[in-house]
């Protein structure tokens, strides 16, 4: 069985367990439910028999390589695309052909009318979304994102980061119950990333359910209650970070040595070495003994730090979607 298939079957069982766990954990309704949805474009199956349940009040992270089907799935949630088959439920019911109130959507590619002023465009979108206390909300968010001085400037005068923050305010101006964000942090500097993270967490603490896609595995690990990975249109991971990591076992050793990367070559039992310069991350083969490996390393160099660990989300991502997976699959 290829590694891809192995992970896929693992994800299926993980999904099942995850659902049970969620139901037991929160005992509350799923705000978003996708049941066996499929979408094909020009003979290319972008999303393949995908099912997903997002519990109310959770932060759900979508990860997956470029072109894996994340954006298509999100657009189907938003009713912008219709699935070829399957059912999508928001707030417990289907909304075929209509826009759902109380859902905020930040697309991957942002766009605002450039000739409109910031306050004007926020008012426009707030009216479209039938928001309450429009002026109050606009002032609050402009102040929070340090954009008050730009309220009467045209959008075309804003920097990319500022436009992105305005776009985020547009998304959440009506305080929606579901917030769907496609790559919300892309292109933001670390300071603005932190500001945006804080805003997302604030909205979650107010009761919103948040789904966001990201390529930043660190953000997904730290912020998400649940992580969902899609690869080639299929679901390959779904669950909490620890449940996902548990499936991959403790097959990772983080090590700091005097000899560095070169001394870790050609040691039996080491499947792969990730070199971070000052530190290396070793993946050991399933049949190998970590004690034998450390003995082999100690015979070659001085070890200053050594720990066994679960694989990071980044490592798991690469194992599923990286070139290795292709090699294994094509073998």
């Amino acid at each position: 069985m290829s590694k891809f298939k192995q992970f896929y079957s693992l994800a299926k069982s993980d999904d099942h367990q995850g659902k049970v766990k969620k139901m037991n954990y929160t005992n509350q309704m799923n705000t978003i439910e996708l049941l066996n949805i499929t979408k094909t474009f020009n003979n290319h199956r972008a999303v393949d028999d995908l099912s997903l349940s997002v519990p109310k009040g959770s932060i759900y992270g979508f990860i997956g390589p470029n072109g894996s089907g994340k954006t298509t799935t999100i657009r189907m949630m938003m009713n912008i695309f219709y699935p070829d088959s399957g059912v999508i439920k928001l707030f417990g019911r289907e909304h075929s052909g209509s826009r759902i109130n109380n859902v905020g959507y930040l697309p991957e590619e942002r766009g605002l009318y450039k000739k409109m002023k910031v306050r004007e465009i926020l008012r426009f979108h707030a009216s479209l979304k039938n928001a309450n206390n429009i002026n109050q909300e606009i002032n609050y968010w402009l102040n929070k994102f340090d954009l008050t001085d730009w309220a009467n400037k045209k959008v075309e005068t804003l920097s990319k980061g500022m436009s992105q923050k305005i776009q985020f305010i547009v998304t959440i101006i009506d305080r929606p119950e579901i917030i769907i964000l496609d790559e919300p942090f892309s292109g933001l500097d670390p300071v603005n990333t932190e500001v945006l993270k804080a805003a997302i967490l604030e909205l979650r603490s107010d009761g919103a359910t948040i789904v966001f896609s990201t390529h930043d595995m660190g953000v997904a690990e730290k912020m998400c209650d649940y992580i969902f990975m899609i690869h080639k249109g299929k679901k390959v991971l779904d669950g909490t970070l620890s449940s996902i990591q548990d499936k991959f076992g403790t097959d990772t050793i983080r090590i700091q040595t005097e000899g560095g990367y070169a001394t870790l070559q050609n040691i039996p039992g080491i499947e792969k070495v990730n070199d971070f310069g000052q530190m290396q991350e070793i993946r050991i083969s399933p049949e190998a003994d970590s004690q034998n490996i450390i003995r082999s390393i100690l015979s070659k160099t001085y070890v200053s730090k050594f720990e066994t660990a679960k694989p990071s989300l980044n490592e798991i991502f690469i194992r599923i979607a990286g070139p290795e997976e292709k090699e294994v699959k094509n073998a």
Binding site: M78, N79, I80, G97, S98, R99, V103, G104, Y105, L106, P107, E109, R110, G111, L112, Y113, K114, H125, L128, K129, Q167, V170, T171
Partner: peptide, 19 residues
């Protein structure tokens, strides 16, 4: 222009194509 500038998708997050 709304398509190229990606404005259309933002608007379509709030309204249907018919609207």
């Amino acid at each position: 222009e709304e398509k190229i500038e990606r404005i259309a998708e933002v608007i379509l997050g709030s309204v249907t194509p018919f609207q």
